[in-house]
């Protein structure tokens, strides 16, 4: 099988006072090795829920996820996550924040080699001069650069990007997209990104899956994005297909917005995993019957 990541009948149901809320229902997606796939949809449609289930930060109600031939259970360093807010430890410098993960997965390497790894990734994201500063001394954009460096430094099998540039202004976003795409090109890590930014999706992805509005979010259209790589913004925007695809995506999103007003807040905020607990090795496929009754 050539699929590297396989989401099969992925389902997420939250119990609520008024009965179970089906957020994601029978979600299927296959990603090839080295592919960059984006899920696009409005806030609250459930796209971040899918991502956090892959990250292992959110329990799976039904279905399963396979990464590189193994079923996933719980979080692990084989998946690098870049969150919308970079979630850095405020009392540590950028360098120490990156080292924290590096020490976990490169514990057999020498101290010097670990330092080189952290320094390399912090430098290529543009923090060569600022890596010994604390998050409070860094701008929002620089903190997000640390988040990107931290994810790549672990050499994960898969990269998960949850609206990585959502909190940045649009011009800073352009710069960081360039940083991300260059690192990704060198490392060829299989990536899944969640965003609502049409231009971001087009610039970065090989394939864009449009998600319908929740509840019971599903994949609507899937678009192949064939701009040649390595990509450079100017060339991509001048590509004859660019504005055709852009219009297609905007039309899809507008239709979704009119069809169904999105919920006020998404319940996707993942619970912080307790690292002291051993990962649960059980398969999490539960009988569906109890959900259908609702």
């Amino acid at each position: 099988m050539s699929d590297y990541v396989e989401l099969s009948n992925l389902t997420k149901i939250y119990p609520t006072a008024t009965g179970p809320a089906i957020i994601v229902n029978d979600f299927n997606l296959r990603i090839r090795k080295g592919e960059f796939v984006t899920l696009i949809g409005h806030s609250g449609c459930g796209k971040s829920t899918v991502l956090s289930m892959i990250a292992g930060l959110n329990d799976i109600t039904g279905g399963g996820i396979i990464l590189a031939g193994k079923e996933l259970a719980g979080p692990g360093p084989d998946r690098g996550v870049v969150f919308q807010s970079p979630c850095l430890l405020p009392w540590m410098t950028a360098f120490q924040n990156v080292m924290l993960g590096v020490e976990q997965v490169f514990y057999t390497a020498s101290r010097e080699e670990r330092r080189q790894i952290a320094e390399y990734y912090l430098t290529v994201v543009g923090l060569g001069e600022a890596m010994h500063k604390k998050p409070s001394d860094l701008s929002q954009g620089m903190r997000q650069r640390v988040g990107i460096a931290r994810a790549f430094a672990l050499k994960p099998k898969m990269l998960l990007l949850d609206e990585p540039f959502g909190m940045l202004d649009s011009l800073t976003r352009f710069e960081l997209q360039q940083v991300l795409i260059e690192l990704w090109r060198k490392n060829k890590i299989t990536a899944l990104m969640v965003t609502h930014d049409v231009d971001e999706a087009l610039f970065l992805s090989d394939r864009i899956a449009c998600m319908t509005n929740g509840p019971e979010a599903q994949i609507g259209d899937v678009l192949d994005v064939n701009f040649p790589r390595p990509r450079e913004r100017k060339a991509v925007m001048e590509h004859p297909d660019y504005y055709r695809l852009r219009e297609h995506l905007i039309t899809f999103l507008e239709k979704q917005a009119h069809k169904n007003p999105p919920r006020e807040s998404s319940p996707s905020s993942a619970s912080i995993p307790d690292s002291n607990k051993p990962p649960k090795p059980t398969r999490r496929i539960q009988p569906k019957a109890e959900t259908v009754e609702a």
């Binding site: 976990q104 390497a109 790894i117």
Partner: peptide
């Protein structure tokens, strides 16, 4: 810069 070409280990 030096990037040691090492594969990560399972924790």
């Amino acid at each position: 810069l030096v990037l040691p070409d090492i594969e990560p280990e399972e924790p």
